[in-house]
Amino acid sequence: MVSADGTSLLLAVPAAVVGAASMGLASAAQARATKEVEVGRILDPGLLRGLAHRPLWLIGMVATGLGLALQLVALAFAPLLVVQPLLITSLMFAGVFSARLERRPLDRVMVGGALVCIAGLAAFLLVARPSGDSQGFSPSSHPLPLAIALGTLTVVALGVSLLTHHSVRVLGLAVATGVLYGVTAGLMKVVAGQARAGLDEPFRNWALYLVCVVGPLGFLLSQNTFQQGRFLTPALAVITALDPLVGVAIGVWWLGETANADPAALAGQGLAGIVILVGIAMLASRAEHLAAAQSDAPQDAPEGTA
């Protein structure tokens, strides 16, 4: 990995910030576009067919590609612990872009909740200090317990989303999306490591084919999440938090990477996790309040102040 000297940071930091802004725009544009198509069943591919004809959704797809490219540039010139806290600011950019697209002012509580989530996630990564440059599954790893835990969490979250309504449904969809995104990121790291041994090597292993299933499922779920939720920021906060947390867990449990396991560090990670949950609770509670206020407002009243 290239050392994070001054020159490298001058390249990595702007790339990460602009990449985060691009991903924020992508989320806001896609969330807005999903409101313009008919609400369908969860995991129905017909949703993507309907969205493919929406210019705003296509703009979101272009922004996604740009954001991913800039993320790779940033990671090429700086360590993960420099880049990741900058990339998670996409949550804040998404809130700003979403407000502009819906022609409504920013809500201070929403902004505060987003900042709390970003601070908690950045603190977790800084305290955990995940490290390692694995190129595949570690021979000493024990993948089954984590695989069962992640699979169970995804199934339970989907079950909750199918059996409930409104904010609880959105929360279930967001949890399932975040888990699938994190699993996809972990598997993509495996695929990238295999590709170093030869471009045909990934095609000889199952990780690439699992990515081709899990990745699209996660993306489709994200569109369902955006469509079901009235406000973007609470759902995106859950996704943004779970994605790197699951990635770190996969790195440690499956790929043989290391994380700071000192008692003080574990306590700090737990505290950071509590901060993230507080931020998500702030966002969810405020979203419920604003949605109720809008539903009680007269029909000719101006749009809400979320």
Rank of each mutant, 00 (worst) to 15 (best):
R169F: 01
V214A: 09
L199W: 13
P105V: 06
M110E: 14
D107P: 04
S134F: 04
G112A: 08
V214P: 12
A176W: 01
A147L: 13
M110W: 13
T154M: 11
G182Y: 13
R103C: 12
L171Q: 11
L101C: 09
L171H: 02
G172N: 07
L187V: 11
V82E: 08
L150Y: 12
P130Q: 11
V170H: 06
V213P: 03
Q194E: 00
G132W: 11
R100I: 09
E102W: 02
V168T: 13
V179K: 07
V175W: 00
Y209C: 09
M188W: 14
L180K: 00
L87S: 08
S167Q: 10
V116P: 02
E201N: 11
S141E: 14
L171Y: 05
V168S: 13
S90I: 07
L144Q: 12
A174M: 01
L162T: 05
M92L: 14
R169H: 04
G151Y: 00
T177W: 10
L208I: 09
D133C: 03
E102C: 11
H165F: 08
L106C: 04
G120E: 14
G151H: 02
A114R: 03
V168L: 14
V211T: 03
V179H: 01
N205H: 15
V127S: 09
I118W: 12
L146C: 05
S167M: 12
G136W: 01
L171D: 05
G198Q: 10
V111L: 02
T164V: 02
A99Y: 07
V179I: 14
V96G: 04
F203H: 04
F97L: 02
A119V: 10
G193K: 01
R129F: 09
R196L: 15
F97T: 09
A122P: 08
G112W: 15
G112Y: 15
V109L: 10
C117L: 14
G151D: 02
P105F: 01
P105M: 07
S138E: 07
A114V: 14
E102I: 12
G112H: 13
G95L: 09
S131H: 14
L146T: 05
L163G: 13
L121N: 11
A207G: 04
A185R: 01
L121W: 06
A122L: 06
L86H: 11
G151M: 05
P85L: 04
W206P: 03
L81E: 10
S90G: 06
L106S: 12
L187N: 12
G178L: 01
P139M: 02
F93P: 03
M92R: 12
F203R: 12
A207L: 03
T177L: 10
G193L: 07
A114Y: 09
A128H: 00
Q194R: 10
G186N: 07
D200P: 13
S134H: 00
A197M: 04
S140M: 07
G136F: 00
H165E: 15
G136V: 10
G136P: 03
V116T: 15
P139F: 03
V116M: 08
S140G: 15
V170P: 03
A128W: 02
W206S: 13
V168N: 03
L158C: 06
S161D: 12
E201L: 08
A128C: 07
T152L: 15
S140N: 11
G120T: 08
G136H: 01
A207Q: 08
V96N: 14
A195N: 07
V191W: 00
V96L: 14
G120C: 06
G151N: 06
G198L: 00
G159P: 07
V170N: 11
V83H: 02
A174Y: 02
G193V: 05
